[in-house]
Every structure is written in C-alpha cells, then in structure tokens.
Amino acid sequence: LCGDMCHVFSIIVLLLRLRVARNAQGISLRTHELFLLVFLTRYTDLFTTFYSLYNSVMKVLYIASTSSIVYAIRLQEPICSTYDRAQDTFRHWAFAVAPCAVLALLTHLISGGSLFSFVDIQEMLWTFSIYLESIAILPQLIVLQRFREVENLTGNYIFFMGSYRALYIVNWIFRAYYEPGYRHHYVVYFCGVLQTLLYADFFYYYLMSKRRGGKFSLPT
C-alpha cells in the first residue's frame, strides 16, 4: 500500500507541477509515453480477471492519469509550448521498446509459452511491460542531467516514483516469507531491483540537497 501510494503521490505531484507552473520544463514526455505503454500492456487483465476493487480502480487510475500527463505535455496550451523537445532526446523506441519486446518474446518462448492464444499474447505483453517499466525513467534522467538544476516538485515526483518500486521489493520479501503459496516472478524481482538501482544516484543527490535545505542540482 505504501508503494502504491508513493506511485499515486508521484503522479499527483507531477500533475500539480504541470498545472500550477503551467509549463513542462525539465519533464520528459518520452518517459511518460513509456509509462503509458507499460500500463496499457500490463493491465489487459482488466477485461479478463478481477482481483479486487482496489486493484481495478488503481489500474484505471494509472492509465487515466498517465494519459492526462501525456495529453497535457503534447497538446494542452500553454504547457505543450514549453515542452523542450530538443532536450528530450533518448531514442526510446530503438533503445527501450524494441529491446524489451525482443526480451519479452525470448522470455516467453524459453519458459515454454506459445504464441497462438489470447492468454499467450496477454502473458507476453505483461512480461514486456515489466521489462519496459524498469527502464522507463531513462529519458527523464537524461533530461535531468541536461537541466542540472532540478525544480523542487520535479525532484519530489522522481523521488516518489523511485520509492514506489523500492517499497515493492520490501513487499516481495514480506510476501515470500509470510504468504503460503506466493508465486515467485523472478523477472519481476530482477526488474524491480534494476529499476530501483537506476534511481540510486538520483536518491543520493536528492537526499543530500534536502539535508542541506538548499537548491537541488546534479553534478556535472
């Protein structure tokens, strides 16, 4: 629950950041397009499996809020005209989506899956989304490096985004110990750790700047 709330909180902080400042400076559209793709490919089970009201509501919330972020940065004046396309240069299709798709296909085939049923495709999309989520923050980290000086709200949103997966690691350890029959998803574990590690450097400078109480900037 804490992990999920960190995730929700990061989304709220980002929406605030966009709507209050009415600009998208220092924000990577590509990261949010990747997240939208992650949620759309992971939550196809909204139509096939019901887990709980909480689970379904959160899924819809993630898809809706991420769509609204992408919409605001792409199309909504005056936010969209402040979006700096020239700084957001990570080639996300070639270096994120394509490799994750290949990896998901390989994982699926190696673990004995086929490609001929809806459930197989659904399973493969799910695996793809796990891989893609782990690196979806990369375009944002690149933009951050370019701007160097990070606005408070932008820093906060990335901090909560990172904390969310870090807390999931705690959740996996807890469930593995205390929940009989909890099924291990090693791809999820691996990607969750990778995802958290990608934030490590950022966490360090973020916490240092909070301690100093000064402006938050990244080193050269």
């Binding site: 689970n55 959160m58 899924k59 993630y62 799910w126 999931y168 099924r183 998803h185």
Partner: peptide, 10 residues
C-alpha cells in the same frame, strides 16, 4: 498456464 490469481500486484 493461464493468468492466474498470481498477478494481483500493480
């Protein structure tokens, strides 16, 4: 194997 109840996390 079908998507079971094991994908209950977000």
């Amino acid at each position: 194997e079908a998507m079971g109840m094991d994908k209950d996390e977000l």
